[in-house]
């Protein structure tokens, strides 16, 4: 094969406008071309939708799964809760993500005023997710990340958090504390 000039298609002399303008001067040609182009668009669109729409559901699938456990999770005995200061209680919960089930340990602060009514507060700061701890001197939950302080009932005392500590529904059965919605 010779050099480029021998090539069958030279860009400058390639099959360009003129021949097409020949056809577009013909009304029949225009409508035919529009019909063809329209059909291509419809078929292409159908294929794109045929994959695209299922793909959206497919990608979004796991987010639709129930993330929050609806069962009651046992924390421990009521007698282990100190009425003077919030008690950190640990429990494990099984989380399912897709085909994987993982066991997670989590902690909540349990407070009580009278020994019969219990409040369970998350130990996760609502600002950026650091773990809070109870500080007796300030009589509040202290977050070390940005020096935020929550009151004993979970409301924000000082600092950047946008909302109070999350609380969980609690119940007492056979002397055991249960929470829901972890």
């Amino acid at each position: 094969m010779g050099d480029d000039a021998d090539g069958p298609v030279d860009e400058k002399v390639g099959p360009l406008g003129p021949s097409i303008e020949d056809e577009s001067s013909d009304d029949q040609g225009v409508s035919r071309r529009k019909l063809l182009a329209g059909s291509v668009g419809i078929m292409g669109g159908a294929i794109a939708a045929g994959i695209g729409v299922p793909a959206v559901f497919y990608v979004a699938g796991p987010s639709q799964e129930q993330q929050v456990a609806q069962e009651w999770v046992r924390l421990g005995s009521v007698t282990s809760v100190d009425s003077a200061e919030p008690t950190l209680m640990k429990a494990t919960i099984e989380r399912r993500a897709g085909y994987l089930t993982t066991t997670e340990e989590f902690s909540v602060f349990v407070t009580t005023e009278n020994g019969t009514d219990f409040v369970a507060l998350s130990n996760v700061c609502t600002h950026l997710g650091c773990r809070v701890r109870w500080v007796e001197e300030q009589s509040g939950f202290f977050c070390p990340c940005h020096n935020a302080v929550f009151n004993r009932d979970g409301s924000v005392a000082t600092g950047p958090p946008p909302r109070p500590l999350d609380s969980f529904e609690t119940k007492v059965e056979d002397g055991q504390i249960f929470i829901k919605g972890v």
Binding site: L36, A37, S39, V40, M43, G44
Partner: peptide, 10 residues
């Protein structure tokens, strides 16, 4: 375009 592509699309 569009003659050949039409066939291909079908």
């Amino acid at each position: 375009w569009p003659d050949i592509i039409f066939k291909d699309s079908i």
